[in-house]
Nucleic acid binder design. Sequence first.
DNA 1: CTTGACCTTGACGTGGCGTCAACTTCTATC
DNA 2: GATAGAAGTTGACGCCACGTCAAGGTCAAG
Lengths: 252, 252
Amino acid sequence: MDWSIQEVARLAGTTSRTLRHYALLGIVEPSRVGANGYRYYDEQSLVRLQRVLLLRELGLGLPAIAQVLERETDAPTALRAHLEWLRAEQGRLNRQIASVRSTIDTMEREGELMPENMFDGFDHTAYEAEVTERWGAEAYRSGDEWWSAKTAAEKKEWQDAQAGLAADWRAAAEAGLDPAGAEGQVLARRQYDWLASVPGTPRDASGGLAREYLLGLGELYVADERFAANYGGAPGAEFVRDALVAFAEASL
Amino acid sequence: MDWSIQEVARLAGTTSRTLRHYALLGIVEPSRVGANGYRYYDEQSLVRLQRVLLLRELGLGLPAIAQVLERETDAPTALRAHLEWLRAEQGRLNRQIASVRSTIDTMEREGELMPENMFDGFDHTAYEAEVTERWGAEAYRSGDEWWSAKTAAEKKEWQDAQAGLAADWRAAAEAGLDPAGAEGQVLARRQYDWLASVPGTPRDASGGLAREYLLGLGELYVADERFAANYGGAPGAEFVRDALVAFAEASL
DNA sequence: CTTGACCTTGACGTGGCGTCAACTTCTATC
DNA sequence: GATAGAAGTTGACGCCACGTCAAGGTCAAG
């Protein structure tokens, strides 16, 4: 006693296309194939199909389902692994919803929300590649959250502080001072403290700013003309880098 | 002043592949293309890219983003629509997680959880195609929830009641009684009450079981040999159907 | 014999890129 | 100026679970 593909599809609440797909993947094969190529299913294959559809409704992927059916894995184990992934998705979704809502709010308060100006002192997006590459996604994300959480006014205040520091760097560089000298080291410490005030920046074991991170930023200022512009161009950026290098050697 | 594709990718925290993809879709085009085919981006296109990446992080699709950039839609509107979809996804995920958990529990209590036997008196999965087609997804879902929420013991009890009714139907049919007679009508009312005890079954305006639903089930019993088997095969099923028709005409 | 329902295989589309592949171009070094 | 290596290009497949034509063969009923 068997049924045609269409009958099985209607009984199981699915489509004939799906049944052919499962047959192609070897997940549920027809019990019999007529000389004309027609597929016929018996009760056993129907039960198998029911199991597949059950697991599918729970969101399991077909390869995982195939494994379960082949007894390489038992269902609860597979489902528990699946549950992990579902929870991760849930977290991601919740965060994304929060982001979208706050973005809508911000846009309505401040107009079309230009993305933060790329070179506004500390742009996390621009940093992302470098930061995540060297320090992991976690560091970038917490830094970005910190920055995103600021109000526009707070951001401006922070940027102004940054602009003041940059102006001092420029002045020192243009005065032809020694990066390793007293003035340069004072500025380097201010830069260090300034960077250290940002939560999420990479730290060393004792909680201080990671040495590599500080040096990396120095190189970045030199390598990227847009950052260099903050410090009066290439010569200024080199001055900053050299001062940071000296500072790192002397104090870290 | 412009940058190569690789530089832009690193600055924006994305990849050159993505930039080419966006150029292909016309979402972010390079400001200049060299005679050698190389792409170069200026600050303006960078800003545009920033906006795109911002919206992408929020989960917007590229077509939607393109619309926003072309000013056919403003960002908050697009984001609100997107938020709807995100919430729907969230609901789906939450339900799925609940299902997975309860399935794991059930499996651990009762072994590998054969999917409910397809013909165990009232299989919702087998019904799904018909039920949703005629009565909408809502009816199916609430009926299924009701069934799924039962414990194994409750299910068995319910099935036993069903089996008793079916046995009575068989006896009546085999005795050659008149479907429209007193016996048949008593059984029809029992069947009616039994079906009406299931929350989510289709109702008419006065809250009674929908006439069409009852008649549809009668036809189903006849049309499907597996259901018919419950009532003693085709003759029994026809008896049930006829009794239900008479009952509907007399009492509904 | 026709009609129409049902079956077959084959192949493209979905979303947003990742990832080769095969080839050209630029840049730096010897 | 030869050469290596980094960076650029286009083209095309892969992912995931099917939906959706397309083109044509099969079967039961009238």
